[in-house]
Design a protein around this nucleic acid. Structure first.
Lengths: 213, 213
DNA sequence: TAATAAGTTGCACTCACTGCAAGTTTGTCT
DNA sequence: AGACAAACTTGCAGTGAGTGCAACTTATTA
């Protein structure tokens, strides 16, 4: 049975799968917020979502995956933005705009996303998983950016630009955490400017081989 | 009982502690290399070092700590280099020299360090722990660098410079992993140059608020 | 030598996570 | 509708990480 759309009808099976997945993610997030991310057990999460523990692990390989609840769409959106960026736009500008969108979502709505960010800053374990997952995204973004810049895939500049972007965000967040009250966007802007213009104009490649000082 | 030196005599106790710590690290590294980092149990490591499992955890909070075997001296050395850098040396140059030293050690001697790096690239878990531990070091380095640059501790530029350094190394390592046969030092040099001069001269701060494109 | 501090160990426990072998639900084909 | 297969869920048993506690051993100090 098909729907007029080109897509296949989801069917009860697929729908239920989505539902339990969502239920698990929601429960995980809620409990993590309530009790602190490190005080939640998989059993509680499964209980709250009304499935067995074993089923939990059929959906997520780690407890953290459920809490982080990465939405594949986010990466997809970012990739599309990279590929569809207007011709004149410089690569770092593109990245800045992508970041802007995320920050926007983060600051204005009290969406689950912002809750997650808060959690991530709390738990080392979560941060860890977050970084690891992020690394994969970075690779894809770098590849897309390389293509758009007309450079070979392994080329360093695109990879550095993507890396610099996450670095800028990280540093900005740390500043916030350390007590700065300037808006996150402004801090990010400052970091981006520094990165764009060169972090150290006085740098010149040192002689790295003779007796190390 | 004192030795003529200013330092206190180590005493049997301290000595034994160092010994078992070293034995545990050595066993952990050896077994990780032999069997793959994810196929080693704490029990095996403790067995090989001839201590109880419980004792293992008195020394290391995670299995990974033992394998990574971070030497606090490494960070201390890097910090000293930052603080004692000659007056005219630009900050990024200082960082480049620190990296040079590590690379040197890595490429020439077949020290445990190089083995560890190899392992780290193999196991996601290890990589993760490595990154997390690195983050702490980054903070300290950034603080030291800020001081040397005469900037306030929370200032973004030093933090970005330190972040850029690890980013440069990461990107260079990925290039190697992806098949480049240029020496690691050359790849790192290229990354540093790009970072120093500015990753994107065409960047200019976009208007981040109105309707997102 | 006696008192004390530091280090080691075994034990019992919680929790994450996996493989396997049922059982149940859903989709499909006739 | 009925039968069959594929997909999903679940319980169970088991491994291994990591923690707290109390008893024990060894080094230090007075």
């Amino acid at each position: 049975m098909q729907i007029e759309d080109g897509a296949v009808a989801p069917g009860r099976r697929e729908r239920k799968k989505r539902e339990t997945r969502d239920a698990l993610m929601a429960a995980a997030l809620r409990l993590a917020v309530e009790k602190g991310p490190d005080n939640v057990t998989v059993e509680e999460i499964s209980e709250a979502a009304d499935v067995s523990v074993r089923t939990f692990f059929n959906y997520f390989s780690h407890k953290e995956h459920a809490i982080l609840g990465r939405d594949p769409d986010d990466l997809a959106l970012a990739l599309r933005r990279v590929r569809e960026a207007p011709d004149g736009e410089s690569p770092l500008t593109t990245m800045r705009l992508i970041v802007a969108h995320v920050i926007d979502e983060l600051e204005h709505h009290e969406t689950p996303i912002s809750q997650r960010i808060g959690l991530i800053m709390q738990s080392p374990t979560l941060l860890t998983q977050f970084v690891v997952l992020g690394a994969e995204d970075e690779r894809e973004l770098a590849a897309a950016l390389a293509e758009r810049m007309g450079e070979p895939t392994g080329s360093p500049r695109p990879a550095l630009i993507v890396g610099a972007t996450t670095m800028a965000v990280k540093v900005a967040m740390e500043q916030r955490k350390a007590g700065s009250d300037r808006p996150l966007g402004a801090l990010v802007d400052e970091a981006f400017s520094l990165i764009a213009d060169g972090l150290d104009p006085a740098y010149h490649q040192p002689d790295t081989h003779p007796s190390p000082r």
